[in-house]
Every structure is written in structure tokens, then in C-alpha cells.
Simulated assay, not measured.
Amino acid sequence: MEKCMDVQSQGIKQQIKSVITLDYLTNYIYIEADKEAHVKEACKGMQHIYSNTKPMLVPIKEMTDVLSVKSKSVELSKDTWVRLKLGTYKGDLAKVLDVDNVRQRVTIKLIPRIDLKALANKLEGNEVGKKKKNFVPPPRFINNREMKYMHIPVERKQDAITGEYFETIDGMMFKDGYLYKTVSMKSISSQNIQPSFDELEKFRKPGKDSDGDMAGLSTVFANRKKGHFMKGDAVIVVRGDIKNLMGWVEKVEEESVYIRSNIPGFKEFLAVNEKELCKYFKPGDHVKVVSGAQEGATGMVVKVEGHVLIISSDTTKEGIRVFADIVVESSEITFGITKLGDYVLHRLMQME
């Protein structure tokens, strides 16, 4: 940069168009110019550049790779939601349990897709019939009683590292009905994973208490956008010492949300971290879903179950289950088909 400014001050025309360095390719720089002589002249007299080294022309096929931007990798941690990229479980939702950054592997749990009949035949040494092409068993939790009924041997083993006990079937590890696998980081997708409410409900084993819907809320919180809370929003505290306190948003400063509580006579504003707050609605409110699988849907809240809303859809009149945190109050109404040929919804027509 100093040499560039020095040449400019002397009124000499610049022959260099750009200079690029890459974080992942040390000890090299890329210089854009029309001629090799221009590159040599620009490097002459500069420290840390070997002038006796002949500049190498970047092949045209590699030029786009030089200027490509690497996507920011998502840091994996425990309880992160991911999806499998390959095999029988391609596209399936899984939860990260352990991360080994040295070996680039993660331990995950997911709902098994096991063909029990084929597995039983295999373990008994019977001939397994030819599977249908692209056949994928449906996801379902493993049940020990079902294993016993089908004469599938189940071994109970203790993990040498964690000390946890697992049921082992044909080399596969299970616990509480879930399949536990250790896979390569390259075989999972962790960017922009937003499980739908239905997926989270299916992932939670029936009868298993998982602290209500807090596991699903954590995922929703992680995908919040800037400006999520606005003045006037009705909110409820979902974590911390003042859990279940309700109020209204007065102002937002970075991660702190100042709320006016519903406690009679208490006039001071309370500062609450945004990760401890969730939006609150009551039956009769008309709302719009702003993210997730049901994005764009509108309807009236007919029931509130914790932090989950049951909405009567304006379009289908059927119930929709969504998290309260991905909903806003709205007078907007969405319709299904509004036009059929020359006929438009709500237009006056003359009957013949």
C-alpha cells in the first residue's frame, strides 16, 4: 500500500489492478495485472517478497476458485440439531450428543429406521427376500418387548468412556428407543436447520418428559432474527428466577428487553435477556406465522398449550400447531383459491 501511494505521488501510472491474499493459503499473494513485467516492477524492492522467484500465471480454470468465498462453518455443540446427508437416514433430524473436533466426528441420536422382519431373518440365518428398490423403513422407536417377541437378541453393554448403558442389536447401539451413531462431520448438515413443530413432536418419545417444549423452543430461539421483539409485544419469561412472569415490551437494547410487568402497582421496567423471553398470545387473537413450515399462514388462536398455539387456519379451518415465538398479531387474512377462470372471490355476479 505504501509503495502504491509513493508511485501515485510521483505521477507514475499504476499498472497493478488488484492484490489479493487468502487466509487459508499462506506465503502467497495474487496480483492482477496485464503483463508479467508489471508484476515484477511492482514487487521490486519490497521486503518479504522473493524477487528472484518467477511469478506464476494462475490458470483460467482456477481463477474462480481463488476469488471464491468460503462459507462460514457452523460450530457444532451438544444439543445442536442436524440432518443426515447420506444413506437410509438422508434428510432425517438428529440431535448432537458429543463432538470430537480432533477426529472430526460427532455422536448423534435419531429415530431408528430398522426393518425388524429383515433383521430377524438375518440373525436367524434365514434367506432375506429381495428388497424393493429404494425401500426405506419408516422411522419408529425401538421397543424391547417387540425385540423379544421377534426373537431378536439384545445385549446390554456399558460404554467404556461415558459409563452409560446401551442396548446393542447387531452392532447398533440403542437407548430409550433412539439409535445412537458416531458419524463423520462431513456426513451431516448443520446450517440453517429449523425443525418443524411436527418433527420435534415426533422426535420426542411418547410418555417421555422432556421439560415440556423447551427443547423445541431452544431451536426457535437460535434462529431468531434481529428485531424479533418490538414495543407493545406481549411476552412471558420462560427461564430464570422470574419464570412465568408476563408483561409487555417497552424497549429493546441489544440482547436486553425491557418489559412492563403485569404485577399491580409495580411500575419499574424489568431488563430481561431476550433468550429468557417468549411471545405470549391468548385465545381469540388473530395471528400470522412468520417462519417455519407454516410460514405465511393466518388464523385465530383457539387454544394455548404452554408455548404452543393451536390456530384455526383462515384457509382450511383446520388446526395448526406452532410455537408462539414464530407468530405475530396480524389483521391479514390469507385465502386459498381466490380466482377460478373469470370468477374472482367476493366479486358480485348476476345469476341467470
Rank of each mutant, 00 (worst) to 15 (best):
E2K: 15
K3R: 15
M5L: 09
M5R: 10
S9W: 02
K17P: 02
I20L: 09
Y24W: 08
Y24I: 07
Y24H: 15
N27W: 02
N27K: 08
Y30A: 15
I31V: 15
E32N: 08
E32F: 07
A33R: 11
D34M: 12
H38K: 04
K40D: 03
K40Y: 03
K44C: 03
G45E: 06
M46S: 12
Y50R: 10
Y50F: 06
Y50T: 08
S51P: 09
N52P: 00
M56N: 10
L57P: 04
V58G: 05
M63E: 11
V69P: 06
V69Y: 14
S71K: 15
S77D: 13
D79Y: 13
L84T: 11
K85I: 03
T88F: 05
T88N: 06
Y89S: 12
D92S: 12
A94D: 04
D98I: 00
D100A: 02
N101W: 05
N101E: 12
V102D: 15
R103Q: 06
T107D: 05
I108V: 15
D115P: 01
K117R: 13
L123F: 08
G125N: 01
G125H: 05
N126E: 11
E127A: 07
K130R: 14
K130E: 13
K131E: 11
K133V: 11
K133D: 09
N134C: 05
F135P: 07
P137A: 12
R140I: 13
N143C: 10
M150Q: 10
P153W: 04
R156G: 11
I161S: 09
T162A: 12
E164M: 07
E164T: 14
F166K: 02
E167T: 02
I169M: 00
I169Q: 00
D170N: 15
M173E: 08
K175H: 06
D176R: 03
L179K: 06
S184L: 03
I188Q: 05
I193V: 10
I193L: 00
Q194D: 12
D198R: 05
L200A: 03
R204V: 04
P206A: 09
R224Y: 09
G232N: 02
V235R: 00
V237A: 07
V237H: 06
D241V: 12
L245S: 15
E253L: 08
E254P: 01
Y258A: 02
I259R: 02
N262Q: 11
P264E: 09
K267I: 05
F269D: 00
E274K: 13
F281S: 01
G284N: 05
D285F: 06
V290N: 05
S291Q: 12
G292Y: 03
Q294K: 15
A297W: 03
T298I: 11
T298R: 07
V301I: 07
V302I: 13
S312P: 00
T315V: 15
T316E: 10
E318R: 15
F323L: 08
F323A: 09
A324Y: 05
A324R: 04
V327L: 03
S330K: 04
I333Q: 14
L340Q: 09
Y343F: 12
R347M: 13
L348T: 14
Q350D: 07
E352Q: 10
